[in-house]
Design a protein around this nucleic acid. Structure first.
Length: 511
RNA sequence: GCCGCGGUAGUAUAGCCCGGCCCAGUAUGCGGGCCUUUCGAGCCCGUGACCCGGGUUCAAAUCCCGGCCGCGGCACCA
């Protein structure tokens, strides 16, 4: 059956099992869609993506961004972009990261309707903090280190029971810079016997010495900074977020945040937590990437090195935003972890690139051959098999030299577009133009390039932590392309043009 | 250690809530073939999975119990 031509197979299939063909077309139509959101109403959904601008985002961060975007679109809702930069000490924001992240999101096709920066909203947090104190839900803790032990034992600092006036007064002292780091914190009252000690009277605000650690946006203006859990609750409510999509590392945070909602009598949003996403063979961790770059300043090309799983790195590798979105939607919102295989991403990307990428001949193991023929020859080669009308022409005359790959050397081959040749020690003897003949003889159909007009190309091939540099030659037509264009080097793989100088530097995407 | 969440082929995912139509579907990978001026794409065939053990039931991937494994959290990080 398999040896029959496709047409024949199809005919037999139609004859015997006509229903199978119909079924097949039906399933093809089916596209992966996200499950519905709980309590979601069309036009009223509002999601948010809240990155910490301490570095560029990676594929794992792109998951909540794309999912939030996708759900907002699905329900004709809105999406908020919010920079969470409230720790100038241990998670110091990077000034460039704010814009870099926005660029990455735009490139990914993520659309947001509102944009906020937490460090610009400090007075809002202060106001809510005062209200929390007035309602008896928060207190100033002056016990320093001792609190940790007390809380672990299910007890709290004595100041917890001080009157509201005392709390308010000391809160203002916190704001006025009367305390140093570690001397005072604002805590949210919780059950003191909560099974998770970190939930017990969790910290909502602490002192950070911004003279020592100035904030890139607001400098040393503030010393009392809200913690993640506090700022997030306030913002999610004030911004009208209805659905929070985030990783499962936030599960416990949700519990903490609910104390704020309860005290303020706010209606909490729906929380959806999903598992972690890894990409096989790529480095994703922000801190690890930073360390690698610091320790090996010459080894990496930047935060967008194609060996990194940053969005910028994947972009540089030649991965399309469509491919990233496709795999993220495929993984969906299930709570389990996912280790995406590179083969999977590459395959999705290949399908997208296949129709877009022009085909160019490239030789990475060159051997020189002199053409022997009785006349000049012209190779008319389509840029893409799907668009045969658009071609370039390469003229070769007797005595001209060409490159072919050493590994392609055989007694007789067909040079793409040019004709059939018998190969000798260092010459190629033209034997005819017949494609028919080449097929019948099962000749290898190989790429080649004219020596005189060849363009030097360096291919950067990412391999785990290494970047292999392959030198070679491309046919002259490569000159028609610019940086960031994606091509397929025939019988070699897909590449993205990285820079154009003395030679073309390209990044190998995948086969 | 404690708390929480998971475990479907190499990878990803469908089915699990509402047990039978699932001797488990799809994509990718791998093997083979057809087609094709690429070892690409397309098409065809094949390959391969319900973590383990009990229980409930006429019937369990689906429900219940126990175990094992994995992940997350246990911060004045986000």
């Amino acid at each position: 059956m398999n040896k029959l031509p496709v047409n024949e197979q199809k005919r037999i299939l139609e004859e015997r099992y006509p229903h199978l063909l119909v079924e097949e077309e039906k399933t093809k139509e089916k596209e992966k869609t996200l499950p519905p959101l709980p309590n979601a109403e069309k036009g009223k959904v509002k999601t948010r993506f809240a990155p910490n601008p301490d570095f560029v985002i990676h594929l794992g961060n792109a998951r909540p961004a794309i999912l939030s975007d996708e759900y907002a679109k699905m329900y004709d809702g809105k999406m908020v972009l919010r920079f969470e930069d409230t720790d100038p000490r241990t998670k110091k924001p990077l000034r460039e990261a704010y814009d870099l992240i926005k660029e990455d999101l735009k490139w990914l096709g993520v659309k947001w309707h509102e944009e906020y920066i937490q460090s610009q909203r400090m007075s809002i947090y202060y106001d809510i903090a005062r209200e929390l104190i007035r309602r008896g839900c928060a207190y100033i803790d002056l016990c320093k280190e001792k609190s940790r032990e007390l809380l672990r034992a299910g007890k709290a600092c004595e100041t917890r029971n001080n009157p509201v006036e005392w709390q308010l007064e000391h809160f203002e002292k916190m704001l006025n810079g009367e305390y140093n780091e570690g001397e005072a914190v604002l805590r949210i009252k919780t059950k003191l016997d909560h099974p998770n000690p970190s939930v017990r009277d969790w910290v909502a605000m602490r002192i950070i010495d911004t003279v020592k650690n100035p904030h890139p946006l607001v400098g040393s203006k503030y010393t009392a900074w809200p913690t993640y859990n506090f700022a997030v609750s306030v913002d999610d409510h004030l911004m009208g977020i209805t659905h929070v999509l985030r990783g499962k590392e936030h599960q416990v945070n949700t519990e903490k945040q609910l104390y704020i909602y309860n005290c303020m009598r706010w209606r909490p949003p729906e929380f959806i937590h999903f598992g972690r996403l890894k990409l096989e063979g790529f480095i994703m961790s922000k801190s690890y990437i930073r360390r690698l770059m610091e320790e090996n300043p010459d080894k990496f090309l930047g935060y967008d090195d194609p060996r990194f799983g940053t969005i910028a790195g994947l972009r540089r590798r030649g991965i399309t935003p469509e491919a990233i979105r496709t795999v993220i939607l495929e993984v969906g919102i299930k709570p389990g972890d996912a280790k995406l295989s590179w083969a999977n991403l590459a395959s999705v990307n290949r399908k997208i690139l296949d129709d877009r990428a022009d085909r160019i001949m490239f030789i990475d193991e060159p051997i020189e051959l002199v053409i022997e023929a009785d006349k000049c020859l012209e190779a008319k080669i389509p840029y893409h098999p799907n668009r045969p009308e658009k071609t370039r022409t390469i003229k070769i005359c007797p005595g001209d030299k060409i490159y072919i790959n050493k590994r392609d050397k055989a007694d007789e081959v067909r040079l793409i577009g040019l004709g059939n040749f018998k190969l000798e020690e260092n010459k190629a003897v033209f034997t005819g133009e017949s494609l028919e003949y080449a097929r019948n003889m099962k000749l290898s159909i190989i790429q080649w390039t004219p020596v005189a007009q060849s363009v030097s190309v360096e291919v950067l091939v990412p391999k785990e932590l290494e970047l292999i540099r392959v030198q070679g030659y491309a046919e002259p037509a490569i000159r028609e392309y610019k940086v960031d264009d994606k091509l397929q080097f025939i019988r070699y793989g897909f590449i993205r043009i990285d820079s154009i100088g003395e030679k073309y530097v390209v990044v190998f995407s995948h086969k």
